[in-house]
Write a protein that binds this DNA or RNA. Sequence first.
DNA 1: ATATTTAGAACAAACGTTTGAGCAAAAATA
DNA 2: TATTTTTGCTCAAACGTTTGTTCTAAATAT
Lengths: 353, 353
Amino acid sequence: MKETLSSISQRLGISTATISRVLSGNAKKYRISEKTAAIVTAEASRCHYIPSLAAQSLRTNKTKTIGLLMPKLSNPYFADISSAIISEANSKGYTAIIADTMENVEVQKDCISALLSRKVDGIIAAPCGNDSKIFKEINARIAPVVLIDRYFEDATISYVTSNNYKGAFDATSLLINNGHKNIVCIQGDEASLPNKKRVGGYLDALSTAGLQDNARILGNAFSIQNGYLETKLLLSSSSNRPSAIFALSYTILLGVIKAIKEASLVIPDDISIISFDDNISLDYMTPSISRVGQPTEEMGQLAAKMLFNKLNDNDTNELVSHIELSTELLIRKSVIKNNGADEDKDKDKNEDK
Amino acid sequence: MKETLSSISQRLGISTATISRVLSGNAKKYRISEKTAAIVTAEASRCHYIPSLAAQSLRTNKTKTIGLLMPKLSNPYFADISSAIISEANSKGYTAIIADTMENVEVQKDCISALLSRKVDGIIAAPCGNDSKIFKEINARIAPVVLIDRYFEDATISYVTSNNYKGAFDATSLLINNGHKNIVCIQGDEASLPNKKRVGGYLDALSTAGLQDNARILGNAFSIQNGYLETKLLLSSSSNRPSAIFALSYTILLGVIKAIKEASLVIPDDISIISFDDNISLDYMTPSISRVGQPTEEMGQLAAKMLFNKLNDNDTNELVSHIELSTELLIRKSVIKNNGADEDKDKDKNEDK
DNA sequence: ATATTTAGAACAAACGTTTGAGCAAAAATA
DNA sequence: TATTTTTGCTCAAACGTTTGTTCTAAATAT
């Protein structure tokens, strides 16, 4: 029933060594005659031989498996990325095992142990927390690591991310070009690098327009809750209501929308909104939400390709690449011209001083 | 550097057999003295021994791995289910490898081969297509299979699904109780069992209210496109415009919303809407969308538990269980009382005849 | 004709576990 | 005391590959 090298070997009268070499494509390298090779391949496919991965792994110390460390698979952003990575891996004969850290550093540790005990050949991770040590350690001594979305600034680990800075710059600029001067930014996890970059883009866009004094950055988590509470708070003080809000993630945006609705304000008439992250549902909201889209599919594919490069090129194994993919500004209906509220702005400005 | 049974064996002067038995928790079963057991466990944890999964698999023919066959990981519904399964698996010491069939029967075949060549201990699948043969075959002769969401009606393979019939019945009843008599149902893949059940619930709810003659079932795919086109078509003929639409999935719903917006109609004033599938974004639409939620997390957990039961209980290995979990009617703002359009209804009815 | 190279393949040793069988010493029984 | 049972462990064979070494026959060179 179960075909192995030796079952074929017996039937054919050819040694397992020869069969193994033929089947792994090393026929000429070991000068196996074309005739023998042909016989072997024919028989192998005839009896549907499937090599035992366990035996191969045991012998070669390679598992043809990559580990995927994701913070939250139920987050569509990471689901999309994962999906792309998995496809790319499968097409290269690798399989991916996913670990969901649930944005918890402790869980992340367990997940890493699990992946390592599985002897994965490499890891693609969107790390949570700021401790780069484990990842550097793994990358240097155990298995190559590629970071995705989130990364560490010291240049030892490869990563692929999107141009968070420019994305945020563009989004803010869109608001500014529509006459908005009082733009609040609701951020996510302050410690995460993508968040820092986005905040940087927001600030620089304001500065470029001479509006640096108007910068207001609120919040501290990539969650609906955070978006909701900060907006609620923001709108409760009638003194300095912004004309536009920039939500730094899809989840934050949802919270913002909820709070705005509860305040009986209308987007975009009363307040303009723009967000980071693309999500199909944003096109179906009323109004549809302008946003900065990240190329999740490309990011996933690229991360996988980078990892496979590392796995194959033993010579250039110390190549570290840092790639930033462009974001895309998706203009919908949630941003409109700021209609003559400039007086308010100036008044606000004066009040600030 | 790398610890193995024999490295420990040498250091301790205890045979690998004994160490193996202690570490796999079979100490008493093989009458290993408590003293020896203590020494072994202490040393194992001291040197951070990690068993080689490859060697274990090779020897035992078990991989401690389950395969997850999903139609589309980028669909939040399946992402949620997958997430739950993965967590449950990890907590039991298993890892999951995901294969994304992209709703394509051919791809599904390849994915199955891939999973089998990985020698997964079991498979949890949301199959696409209607061919139950492969799954029965696998379940009977290779590895236990548990189906999730989609299933086959002949009783040989275990499955867990939600009560699609009752969910649809409830949703339709909500519309009826709000005075709606002209309710259109836009369905997904006609061949899929969940879809059939939902349609059944819709029809029976109408019948119960004596409205069976008003039944209208349109469409044929779980896609935005399908929801959009069918609604577009539906609204273009002004003659028999429904007062409510029941979308049989989240994707269909998005299409419906788009078409309604383009027709300059307002939900729920002009038309009431209800949908199958829960998705957080539905709470943030204007208006928020009433819907039938499925307990994705429970479904995933349960499927995993069912599979592990099969993997462990060798005696009752022929236990097949079919579980239906309750759906939840989430009432929001997209359904309102049908205000006196009864004349229209009756008129429509007459026109129909 | 002898010595050397080459082609083509087989041998056998790992890789790290698990597990049935076996064996000596200690304990219990007769 | 002699026999049986129990206790506590070791032996060694598998599991299915890969791969360095070796071997034989044929081909080439001297």
